[in-house]
């Protein structure tokens, strides 16, 4: 099922072309929209929501034309903007209830849904306090909650990990993954950091300067290569030497040793080498291709 599609979509502003002949499609699940700042990600979302007219081309969400059916689209789509968008003097509960009503939910249903949604995004007792006193992480959760409160079919999340610390980032990404799988809501999530999207997306669209660079399933982007990475606390030179002697193909990048896997015996050789040298193993993992490679 196609969640969103564009065809030759172009958006020109007086000074800059934000989108240039963009033709993409995305299905259910989590779709990542990757691009540097100013690549046209936010502009694309606004056009899809029917808030901004396109200069040329067409865009559609769930089979509805963004240019003429904006209201119908916005009824069943959730949107989390990149910028701050919360009033400081109301509580998260009040705000999310109000936003649910703005999506057409009756008051009692709005209350129930707001409580449910805030619990799902991980806001508990603090949801009764005014938003002005929240941390960045909590504000991001409220922003996410207001995008989900009306149980949309699709959510557009614009840079949801912006400004979060590493732990908050991980939690937000895990939450987005859950929205896509457990909640059954399709997600379009933008980021300028490629690494974080590859952990949660089923499909990745890469745009640069308003043009499509690549659109493919995550599996194609990060195919498992026949190599393992090894990191040890000390003595990586010893290990590299030992493995080379044993006839393995070894590449060293900083402290990380990459070993090409010839056959299953390679794993045995590696294990024995680590034991013989009595090294402290930090990490041992299969090497994946990375989406960064798209830009190389």
């Amino acid at each position: 099922m196609t969640i969103l599609a564009t065809e030759g979509l172009t958006k020109r502003f007086p000074r800059v072309t934000a989108l240039d002949q963009l033709t993409v499609a995305a299905g259910t699940g989590v779709t990542g929209l990757v691009g540097a700042n100013g690549a046209g990600k936010s502009t694309l979302i606004k056009i899809l929501l029917g808030l901004l007219p396109a200069s040329a081309g067409r865009a559609s969400v769930l089979g509805m034309d963004s240019a003429v059916q904006g209201l119908e689209i916005r009824r069943i789509v959730g949107y989390m903007p990149e910028h701050e968008c919360l009033p400081p003097d109301v509580s998260a509960t009040e705000f999310v209830v109000h936003m649910a009503q703005m999506s057409g939910l009756p008051r009692t249903a709005a209350r129930e849904r707001a409580a449910d949604t805030l619990r799902h995004v991980g806001l508990h007792e603090e949801r009764y306090r005014p938003i002005g006193g929240y941390s960045t992480g909590m504000k991001q959760r409220v922003k996410l909650a207001q995008a989900l409160v009306h149980d949309p079919k699709v959510v557009f999340l614009d840079e949801p990990t912006n400004g979060l610390d590493p732990q908050g980032r991980d939690e937000m990404l895990a939450l987005i993954r859950r929205i896509g799988s457990e909640f059954g809501i399709s997600v379009l999530v933008t980021s300028h950091l490629l690494g974080e999207l590859e952990r949660i997306c089923d499909h990745v669209i890469v745009i640069d300067g308003g043009r499509l660079l690549r659109s493919s399933a995550i599996g194609e982007l990060t195919q498992v290569t026949q190599a393992v990475s090894v990191e040890v606390e000390e003595g990586w030179e010893l290990l590299a030497g030992h493995l080379t002697e044993a006839g393995e193909a070894v590449a060293v990048e900083g402290r990380l040793i990459t070993v090409q896997v010839r056959a299953d015996e390679t794993f045995d050789v590696l294990r024995d080498a680590l034991c013989d040298l009595d090294l402290n193993l930090v990490r041992l993992e299969q090497r994946h291709g990375r989406i960064e490679d798209v830009f190389k």
Partner: peptide
């Protein structure tokens, strides 16, 4: 406040013109 704290885009991203 809706202009200052940029709440307006949230209203307009819903079926509200």
């Amino acid at each position: 406040p809706d202009l200052r704290f940029r709440v307006l885009p949230l209203y307009l991203s819903r079926p509200v013109t």
